[in-house]
Design a protein around this nucleic acid. Structure first.
Lengths: 167, 167
DNA sequence: GCCATATAGTTAGGCGGCTAATTAATTATA
DNA sequence: TATAATTAATTAGCCGCCTAACTATATGGC
């Protein structure tokens, strides 16, 4: 994420453009602004979840479990879908177990493995958060007409594809 | 950051829309995609910096120092501009001191305080990274015509303003 | 001049990431 | 069948972020 609060002003941009010839002020400004706004949106979501005593990592685990027909999954599946390492998922699951939002049940077929199931308390937590979350997302996104949203996303996808320039 | 890799598909969206009436699939999809792409852009930048032995926090400290005419600032100023706590800035500065990229000099007027200065080695590091960074940013952003970039940013700013819905 | 308050920086402790190493069980193969 | 390779999860140790508590110094009434 882009923590940087103090984005470069015209004077700073000139100074850097002088020393580094290939620098294009407009590109840099656009890029930093996009990163900054992404960060701010994510931070808003984090603050919202914090009000419900959740953090992003744990929230996604609960949602991933609720997606399953039997409300059940394995640590490694969860790690992959959530986009974190298995080590991190171990930690997240421990926290959720402590809070009773998920439960653990041994797998009889493979004794290395076990399943994680969303408990009633976990479902209750989602039933508290989601009806608060969805209307807010709807309200926020409705600030932009659907067609323009689609355009916005199309441009962002283009940028994402271009991000291979950093490889 | 949105770590989540496994964005909801149509089936999952239907399931959640059934349980939570106020859920608008399109809004949610758009929102998650925007967060996801922001995260991916930031991750690309991180990987790039890592190739130069830097992480975002330290990189920004060096840049903030180079912006100053005397290449000098204080820990609290740096913390504020970088958007991290003073405690975090203490840690970042320690790392940079260890690597010799910045130096510390006492302030005679206020003995609680001291200044941090970009060293020649720190400037060398920036002179290595920035001429590699700027052309890449330029190349990436040029994938989108300037007018569309401006539109993109305008929409994002609108969204950011709306993110107060989460308060 | 003295005490209360404010400010600069650090330290301690927690959290959520990571990688690498470890343990245990399963699967493949010589 | 014994052993090698693979896989699932955990642990250990690192990092960067946070808040809260602490130390040291400055400042502003009384």
């Amino acid at each position: 994420m882009l923590q940087l609060k103090d984005l470069p002003d015209a004077k700073v941009l000139r100074k850097f453009a002088e020393r580094y010839e290939d620098m294009d002020s407009r590109s840099v400004t656009h890029f930093l602004n996009i990163l900054r706004i992404g960060t701010e949106l994510a931070e808003s979501l984090d603050r919202f979840l914090a009000k419900h005593g959740l953090l992003q990592g744990r929230w996604w685990v609960l949602i991933l479990l609720m997606r399953e027909d039997d409300l059940t999954s394995t640590p490694s599946e969860l790690a992959e879908k959530a986009g974190v390492s298995r080590a991190t998922m171990s930690g997240l699951i421990n926290g959720l177990l402590r809070d009773g939002l998920v439960a653990r049940q041994e797998d009889n077929e493979d004794r290395r493995s076990y399943s994680i199931r969303l408990t009633a308390a976990g479902q209750d937590k989602l039933d508290e958060v989601m009806p608060d979350y969805y209307p807010r997302v709807k309200k926020m996104m409705n600030a932009i007409p659907v067609q323009q949203r689609e355009d916005l996303l199309k441009q962002l996808i283009l940028l994402k594809e271009q991000s291979k320039v950093f490889d």
